[in-house]
Amino acid sequence: MGIISTCMHKVTGLTKCEKGGSDAKKWSGSVRKETPLSEIPFVVFDTELSGLDPKKDFIVSIGAIKMSGSKIHVSREFYRLLKPEGDMSRKSVEIHGITPGELEKKESMETVLPDFLEFITDSVLVGHFINIDIDFINASLKKLNKGRLTNPAVDTHFLHDWLYKHGGEFKRHYRGASGKTDLFSISQKYGISVYTAHNALNDAFITAQLLQKFLHFLRPEGIRTLNDLLDIARA
């Protein structure tokens, strides 16, 4: 999700406890909880939104990229712009730079969602403040009577919080951790180049690079499997 979502997220005080999102316990996918970190199939994704209320706002674009453990598969990407389902606020247009005119002839959520579900299959979902993205996807699924996402999901924001508290080698390596939580401040702190901000695919790619770095510093702290990962950063 874009920066507007991140800010609003803080305001509304969403946490993983209050909003459960998807639930790995109910999940029947093929990825076992004992899967080592290096073998977990991840789909890192992000959405650009017209606002922050899943009841009245809608998804403008979805971007996603696949990873296997810490390897980013650069050509396994997903990016779609969506036909607006209502009015777009001026503020959201200013942030992601996508105008309603550009979206008029794009596909509807009805067409895009099945493709997105096919792309993510039973991968572990990853995002920065991913609950909002999942809520929006679930709202769309609900409107189309297609159930809800059940994939396990990891939030890089929680992962960063955990490393901030427990990652000794992580803090030594980066000479302290970032006190800020938004995607771009964090990216800057950990040396990730940001070329185009607020594009769902680019933001997903940045998040993927964050996950890649974080995963490396989890091993020394004894986090070795999907189960361990979900214990510390489940969305």
């Binding site: 296997s68 810490s70 390897k71 980013i72 598969h73 650069v74 050509s75 390596h173 690079q209 890649q212 770095k213 490396h216 510093f217």
Partner: peptide, 12 residues
């Protein structure tokens, strides 16, 4: 090449 390309991180 890019079809099967991946990106890997190695810390200093």
């Amino acid at each position: 090449i890019v079809e099967n390309l991946s990106l890997e991180f190695s810390p200093k």
